[in-house]
Design a protein around this nucleic acid. Structure first.
Lengths: 176, 176
DNA sequence: ATACGCATGTAAGATGTTACATGATTAA
DNA sequence: TTAATCATGTAACATCTTACATGCGTAT
């Protein structure tokens, strides 16, 4: 149920409407916890029902601006510090690796090389993002930077792994 | 729909029953594409219905041994080489990082340090696994090793990031 | 005889995706 | 006046998790 906590965390930062939150999910949170419009409006309704958020103001076009309640703040803090993150699972990129023995070695090496290129592209994207944002001193900026650094390091490791793996497979191919 | 392709890939390697496949999902594939009993039996039925797998033999206790069909093989190959892996998304560990500004700096640093320890433990697990398996020359072994190396490298990068981030936060704390 | 492992299946509910549907406000 | 943006909501469907339900075969 982390969508719930993402909403709680965002609204805790500043009051917002579903529309506002949606834009955040499409930008800053896109690489971390993507969510669709359906999900956001649905969960916002439920969070209101259970009293973790409230509609503090109405705006034009039926805009509902949500604010976090004390219970919401308590729930957010509990989730942050007292619940264990689930280990990330399911990578269809890696799943394919398991079955690469079904295709010729050069096809497998090509697949791995393509994953290396994709990782390099992601890395470049993160570098660019890092340069384009003017980082403030607010907490979301500070920790946003830490999160971005995660993306950089993981992408770099993925690229190095893919290059190594492709070379490994090509070496095995010649060895046979 | 990658569960489907995981089943296709496994059965392509050697004919198997739902029960056999389940054990593979709980061991080798646990870190890559976990699946439950419900899912496996359900999808196996559907794969039979659409003709990508067939029940080639029956055994005791209603055991059904599945074999891959030519269409199944074609579908597997297509998925392997001609469909793009989805980029991995959703990390509740990272999502928490975004909201770490809600808690005191030392609590945030503790959180990051714990993630570092968890990554170190995963790394140790992979090292141990790597030593315990007697790697053969069969394709599943060769590429299984490549997949394991991925786990090692990513875990190492995660540990280094978490240690760096925790230090970063503690430095900021003193700076204020 | 009895417990353990083998073996399959279904139901209910949570979560997520895609598509549909509607309408108000604002700037050019 | 008309197009873009703001703004919310629902329906259908796919996927995944948890729990329930049943029964055969084999070794002790």
């Amino acid at each position: 149920m982390s969508l719930r906590h993402a909403l709680l965390g965002l609204v805790a930062e500043r009051p917002a409407s579903g529309y506002d939150l949606l834009k955040t999910f499409e930008t800053s949170l896109a690489h971390v916890w993507p969510a669709t419009q359906s999900q956001v409006y649905g969960e916002l309704g439920r969070l209101g029902d259970v009293g973790l958020l409230t509609v503090a103001a109405q705006g034009p076009r039926g805009r509902k601006e949500y604010t976090i309640t004390d219970e919401g703040l308590a729930e957010l803090r509990h989730w942050l510090l007292s619940t264990a993150p689930e280990r990330p699972a399911r990578s269809d990129m890696l799943l394919r690796v398991f079955f690469l023995g079904r295709v010729a070695a050069d096809e497998a090496a090509d697949y791995l090389a393509r994953q290396g290129e994709a990782a390099a592209a992601r890395l470049a994207g993160f570098e660019e993002l890092s340069d384009s944002i003017d980082w403030g001193q607010d907490p979301l900026s500070v920790y946003g930077k830490v999160a971005l650094e995660y993306g950089r390091r993981i992408s770099a490791a993925q690229r190095e792994w893919a290059d190594w793996a492709a070379a490994q497979v090509r070496a095995g191919e010649r060895g046979q």
